[in-house]
Simulated scan of single mutants.
Amino acid sequence: MYRVFEALDELVTIVEEARGVPMTSGCVVPRGDVLELLDDVRDAIPAELDDAQDVLDHRDELVGKAQHEADQATSKARSEADRMLAEAQHEAERMLSEASARAERMVAEAEEQAERAVAAGRQEYEDLVGRAHSEADRMVQAGRANYERAIEEGRAEQVRLVDQTEVVQAAHAESARLVEAARAEAVRLRGECDAYVDGKLADFEDLLAHTLRSVGKGRSHLRGPAVASATAPYDYQD
């Protein structure tokens, strides 16, 4: 069949390359080449047709064989699929059984652990409550003792403060007495100082008066005769 197409392609090439006849649409082709190609086509067609007829004759057989092989492959595939499906179901059931057993075992272990945890928590709660009650009783007793001690200390402090108040009052009275005594002593000392100063001033006044008298006498002698001054010097003593 390939030779037929090859010869036809060569014929087309010869016609396309042929020299045209003037004033017409015809052309001049080499007769020998064209006839040779046509003989090749004629010789090749029966063989190709025989091959095609053989294919057509064996078509039903080939189709039947292919159908049989396809049916066998389909049956085999279906059997394999059924086998794999059965194995998968069996494996799934086995895995499900193992998972169920494992889940039940884990649930049982979890319940057991939960029970142990609850028991431990209840025991710890009871211990904590007991310790809390004991600590509360101890703290109440300690608080009561501290309260009573604070009351006693407060009473003692109250007595001490009362006594201290009396002492403070006595101290204030004593300080007032001392202030009054100091004020009286200051008045007395001021009087004595004034008297002392007055006495000193009086003595100084007498001294000044005596001095003035002596000065007056001296002046009187100075105003007297010169002889008297020479023979009898003046005694400035009183």
Score class of each variant (00 low, 15 high):
Arg131Tyr: 01
Ala171His: 05
His133Pro: 00
Val168Asn: 08
Glu112Lys: 15
Glu192Asn: 03
Asp50Arg: 13
Ala142Val: 07
Ser97Leu: 14
Ala52Tyr: 11
Asp43Leu: 13
Arg177Ala: 15
Asp40Leu: 09
Gln123Ser: 04
Arg160Tyr: 02
Arg78Cys: 06
Gly191Glu: 12
Gln237Asn: 05
Val187Thr: 10
Leu161Gln: 03
Ser75Met: 12
Arg122His: 10
Asp198Arg: 15
Leu35Tyr: 07
Arg31Pro: 09
Glu205Cys: 03
Arg116Asp: 06
Arg213Ala: 15
Gly154Glu: 01
Arg144Leu: 03
Glu180Pro: 01
Tyr236Ile: 14
Ala108Cys: 03
Glu48Ser: 05
Tyr236Glu: 13
Glu152Ser: 04
Gln123Tyr: 02
Asp50Leu: 12
Ser79Cys: 04
Ala136Asn: 01
Met139Tyr: 00
Asp163Asn: 06
Ala142Gly: 02
Glu148Ala: 03
Gln169Cys: 01
Arg59Lys: 00
Ala47His: 10
Ala52Trp: 13
Ala81Val: 14
Leu56Val: 10
Val4Cys: 10
Ala52His: 11
Ala119Ile: 11
Arg78Thr: 08
Phe204Thr: 07
Ala7His: 11
Ala119Asp: 08
Val15Ala: 08
Ala81Glu: 10
Glu153Val: 09
Asp127Tyr: 11
Ala47Pro: 05
Gly130Trp: 13
Gly130His: 13
Gly32Ser: 14
Arg219Ser: 12
Lys217Thr: 01
Asp206Ser: 15
Glu153Thr: 02
Val41Phe: 11
Ala119Thr: 12
Ile14Thr: 09
Asp40Thr: 12
Gly32Leu: 10
Ala92Tyr: 06
Leu161Asp: 00
His90Gly: 13
Gly32Cys: 04
Val4Asp: 10
Ala92Met: 06
Val107Trp: 03
Met1Pro: 10
Gly216Lys: 03
Leu37Pro: 08
His58Ile: 08
Ala86Thr: 15
Ala99Ser: 01
Gly32Tyr: 08
Asp203Ile: 13
Arg42Leu: 06
Val197Glu: 11
Asp43Gly: 11
Ala182Leu: 12
Asp198Gln: 15
Tyr2Val: 12
Met23Pro: 01
Arg94Gln: 07
Ala226Lys: 02
Gln141Tyr: 02
Ala73Leu: 08
Val167Trp: 06
Gln169Asn: 02
Asp198Pro: 01
Glu109Leu: 10
Glu192Thr: 04
His210Glu: 13
Ala108Phe: 04
Pro46Ala: 10
Ser25Asp: 14
His210Gln: 13
Gly216Trp: 05
Leu37Gln: 09
Val29Glu: 02
Asp54Tyr: 05
Glu135Leu: 01
Ala114His: 06
Thr24Cys: 03
Leu49Asn: 07
Ala119Arg: 14
Gly130Ser: 15
Arg183Ser: 08
Glu48Lys: 10
Ala145Asp: 08
Asp57Asn: 05
Lys76Met: 09
Asp40Asn: 15
Asp57Pro: 00
Ala228Glu: 09
